[in-house]
Every structure is written in structure tokens, then in C-alpha cells.
Design a protein around this nucleic acid. Sequence first.
RNA 1: GCUCCCAUCGUCUAGUGGUUUAGGACGCAGGAUUUUCAAUCCUGUAACACGAGUUCAAAUCUCGUUGGGAGCACCA
Length: 484
Amino acid sequence: MKSIIVRFAPSPTGDLHVGGIRTALFNWLFAKNKKGKFILRIEDTDELRSSKTFIKSIIDALLWLELKWDNNKIFFQMQHKDMYIKFANLLIDKDLAYPCYCSKKEIEILKKESIASKTPFKYNKKCSNLSLLQRKQLETSGKKSVLRLRVPNTGSTSFEDSIRGKIIFENSSFDDFIILKPNGIPTYNFACVIDDHIMKISHVLRGDDHISNTPKQIFIYKAFNWEIPKFAHMSMILGKDGARLSKRHSHISVLNYRKEGFLAETILNYLALLGWSTEDSQQIFTIDELKRKFSLNKCSSSPAIFDPVKLLWLNSEKIRLKTPEQLCRLFIDWLNYNGNLKLIKDWDYELLTKAIELEHSKIKVLKDILYLVDFFFVTDSELNYSLSEYKIEYSETINILNFVLVKLVVLNNFSAIVIEQCLRNLSKLSGKKSSNIFHVVRFAISGKIKGPSLFHMMEIMGKHKVIARIKFFLKKASKYERKK
RNA sequence: GCUCCCAUCGUCUAGUGGUUUAGGACGCAGGAUUUUCAAUCCUGUAACACGAGUUCAAAUCUCGUUGGGAGCACCA
């Protein structure tokens, strides 16, 4: 059996967006599932728009998502310019391609004419039958040429798409397209075929925007008499407005999701769900499960709209599956990635882990941890009391807190259970509603009206800090009241 | 304009002629639980684009209509 080799071939003309990552992911999953190879090829033949920055960001994104490519090296097309010319010469020798001396301006005029007459543009083959002598004359007169492929103008070309089934094109709808630019650099379709051939690519898995390139590429395969790989075209990912993500929303790099605190495996899991599914509609997968279960015939042929709300849900599910220790590590790595590690430089990691455990169910993105647990670590005066939502009146608040203080000071065992008992007793003793007591204490020590389980939060904070906080709050409150 | 692709709840999808009063997930609404916020657990909400045909039987097959998308570069 032929060995399975696939490739991901981005052009470094922009950051990798979710559409690009999905293509990479499906190729990678397909390779892993079939125990094949996954190759990374950078299609940098567009000299004008390609940049090193984008190459770096593409590699960074793949590394973050751990979509590792095989052979431990990256193929750059521009490092193999000579190879394309060699192959092109082969076609000239067999007269399957010919140089064309028409200038860009001449072609422009032809195009305008075809628009005016409402017929599709096709190159008029003006240069297709020049004699060798004529070519030489044009060349010595300084005329630049491109290389065009001879395309059959009768019959049809078809291929069996692994996702969509048979797709047929009439050959007459194609013209003799350009395979080599005047500077000797190949055009996309030519370079793609040469590379896929020399890399022994067995399956070409890409976005369905390439469907109409496929017959052109088949013309090239046939000209060389090469074996044609299997093609599979997956549906596009669209934005909320139903427009293709890769164009109008192209500024959204996947690395942005990293910055926001999404987990790499969330991105992969979610993207896998866009255009692929299992019979039981399973939603949450480990990466190993994805590798094991992925198959092309479960890929959908209709486009999918990217839903950030579901992505967020999935991320919180993934986060819930982590241990507090793992999350703490992930959080630190995330701060480090964003250059914000200094924000927690005085924080005690052991306390942080406990705090994370306490608020685990509320964390949707890593970013959330910061504002969810910061009150454990900041100094009393750094605490921002959000008074706007605070409901209980001043005198009552002072009253309760003074009671609480007296009770807490004498507590030897400052564990959640004991604290709870203590505060509930206080409620009975004083006749004050327990919910009021809890509310007031919560606000005094955290500055918030929402938060983790009160008694656990107090236990973790420790007796010393809890008492100090309450005292600090009382002082602050009395000042505030006097000002009023 | 030409060519190609696509069409099930708001969104992602299951479904490949009868097992379907169309299943799951996100979302949304209501309830239970709870010291708050979450989480959790129930319950509910909502779809086969339309029209012909094939068939005893169609979301599923065929054709047409409509709608959406992509491609038509000396971009990839």
C-alpha cells in the first residue's frame, strides 16, 4: 500500500487564522490516524506579500497548538527556484508549454474586451504557435516572456473528491494559464504540483476554495505523466455574517486566542467540530481521541459558521478537566507569554493553587483567574471595594462586623467547618439573618459581593489576614461615613 | 457574466429509503440545589429552504427554483 503523506502549505502573507489552522489540523489528524507523515511547506513565491514576520507567526501558532510536522524541517519554495525551472524546461522540450511574449498591458486590454462583451476571459493563444526563430527574435529584442501550459480545449477533466464525490469540469472553460513568471518564479498551481509530486504527497486536503484549481493542477500532472494524488476539499469556516473567515476576518490570528487565555487543546477540539463529527455527536475530545476517531468520510461538505460562544463554553469545560496544579502552571505560562508575569511576582503559588481550586468552576479563560482571585494577594489598601452593589446599611454592617470580630479572634481552629459553625451560632445568638452576616463578611474581606464559598475562602486566607481585613474595612467605613 | 460547491433547530451537527412524534451539543427560558456568584441536575424552546417527480414509503434518490459560498491573477 502507498504510504500516506500529507502537507500543510500556508503562504506567509498573513497570520494563521482559524481557517488555516483547521486545514493544518485536519491534515495532521489524518496523518496521525493513518500513521502517515505530515509535512510543513511554506509557499513563499509571492515575493511582494511574503514576510519573515508571518513565517514566524505561522510557526509559533503551530508550535503552540503542538501540530508537529515530520522530517524536522520546513520546506521553503523559494529555496528551490531552480528545480521549478528545470521541470518547466521539460515541458517546453515536449512542447506541452510555450513562452508567451504578450505584455501585461496587452492582456489587460483582452480582459477589458471580454468584460465588455460579457464573455469569460480566456487567453487568445497568440504566442502558442511561434516558431523557434520568432521566439529568438522576440527575445533578442528584449521581450520578457512567461511560460504557459498547453491546456486541452475539448473533453472534460474530473476527479473523485474524498469528501464530495465526483467533480467534473469542461476543459473548454480553462485557458493556457501561466506556470512560470518572467522572473522564473513558478505560479501557485505549478509549484504546488511539482512539490506535491517530489514530496510524494498521497492526499491533498485543503479548503474548497481550491476546487477550481484542481483541474488546472491535474493538467500539469498529466503533462508530466505523473500519478495524481487523492484530493479532499473541506468546507470553509465562515464568520457570523456568513462571509468567509479567511478574507474579511483575516486579522484574527489564532495567537489572539492564546493571548485571551484559551487553551491550545480547546482550539483544536473546537475546530475539529467545525466540519467533522462522530455519529454520537460527541463534543469533548482529548487530542488522542481526535487522532483515533478522525476520518475523511465524516467530514461535512457544507460550510460552518464560527461560534465564539461555543468556543468559550468548550474552553471552560477543558479548564474544568485540569487539576488546580495544572491550571496554576498554565496560568503562569500564559502570563509569561503575555509578558505580565510581574503582575503576580509577590504571589504565593501554593495559595494561588488553592485559590484556583476554589474558583475552578468559574474560570472560562485563563485571563479570568486574575480578577477572580486577586483579592487574596493584594494589600488591604489595594483592595477596591465596589460599593455600588452593596446592599446592607452602614450601622448594621458595623454592628455585625464587630460581633464577628469578637468571635473570630478566639477561634483556635480556623478551618472552614469551624468558621461556618461559629458564624451560624452568631446568627442564632444575635438574631441577625445568617445570609446578612455572610454577605457583610464576604464584602469586608474580599471587597466583592460575589465570590467563592465564604468559609473556604476564609480558611485559605488565614485567620491573621481575615481579622486584619475586617479591621481595615471598619476603619475605612467609618471614615467614609464621616465624610458623608 | 461564466464555472464549481453547498442547503436539517439562532449556531455546530446526527441522520445515507421504513426502527424518526427528526437525536445530541452550544445558546436561550423556567425550575431544583445553594450564604453570593458559578458549577451541577431536571424541564422546556426551536429545524428537514421551496416546488415537482421516483417509490407502497423520502430529511434521505432525481430534476427544477430560490438562497448562500468559492473560483475565474504574471496571489497563494
